[in-house]
């Protein structure tokens, strides 16, 4: 554990909490892609199956359980509790276009051809593209509430901090997880355009912003 990894995990947690609290307080999930949230729940589910097989640390276990619980709570709020406010007409990204290649790739490129490893690889690849329905939705509607932008900012920050963590771990302990690093870098690139707009528009007080 290093400071970058810890800060990355905390940004990830903050992002998830921002989204959950926004939906809970406004009693509405307008502008939120339910599809992205289902994909993130699927990411956590397939990645954290090792909760049952290996113990790494109390921190690790607690965070996994928290992420799982929060992601399912978010999906519940969107599709059950506040489903009347769910903007399904603009959440039209074809998820199968992500799932099919990601499933295929996780069978081809993995550390070990076992169900657990294939599912772990699937979760890593899927996480790198899971935000695309949300970004697609913002592009389609032309704008997002600033709170949605804060959510995306912290998600992107989490990815950026993980990259710094990998550079740190490579130099200090020779750690290099090729699958995680390559897909992590790809994932972070998706946020770059958003980051630029966030800094230039949201932080300068306009509140709302639109993606080109």
């Amino acid at each position: 554990m290093n400071i970058f990894r810890l800060a990355g995990d905390m940004s990830h947690l903050v992002a998830i909490l921002i989204l959950l609290l926004k939906i809970w307080r406004s009693r509405s999930c307008a502008g939120i892609s339910g599809k992205s949230q289902v994909l993130f729940a699927l990411v956590f589910t397939t990645r954290y199956l090792d909760l049952f097989t290996s113990f790494i640390s109390a921190y690790n276990t607690v965070m996994k359980v928290v992420f799982l619980a929060l992601s399912y709570a978010t999906v519940y709020l969107i599709y059950m509790r506040f489903r009347n406010s769910y903007d399904s007409e603009n959440d039209t990204f074809r998820v199968e276009f992500l799932l099919v290649p990601v499933i295929g790739l996780s069978f081809l490129e993995n550390y070990s051809f076992t169900p657990m490893e294939i599912l772990w690889t699937f979760s890593i690849f899927l996480e790198s593209v899971a935000i695309m329905p949300q970004l697609f939705m913002i592009t389609k509607t032309g704008e997002a509430e600033s709170i949605t932008n804060h959510y995306l900012f912290f998600l992107g920050l989490y990815r950026a901090l993980y990259i710094v963590n990998w550079v740190w771990r490579y130099h200090t302990e020779g750690f290099f997880d090729q699958i995680a690093v390559v897909s992590g870098v790809v994932q972070t690139i998706f946020y770059c355009d958003f980051f630029y707009l966030y800094v230039t528009r949201v932080l300068r007080g306009r509140g709302k912003m639109s993606l080109p």
Partner: peptide, 10 residues
């Protein structure tokens, strides 16, 4: 198990 990496990141 042998040969399988331990994934210690979240």
């Amino acid at each position: 198990a042998d040969g399988e990496p331990l994934h210690d990141e979240l």
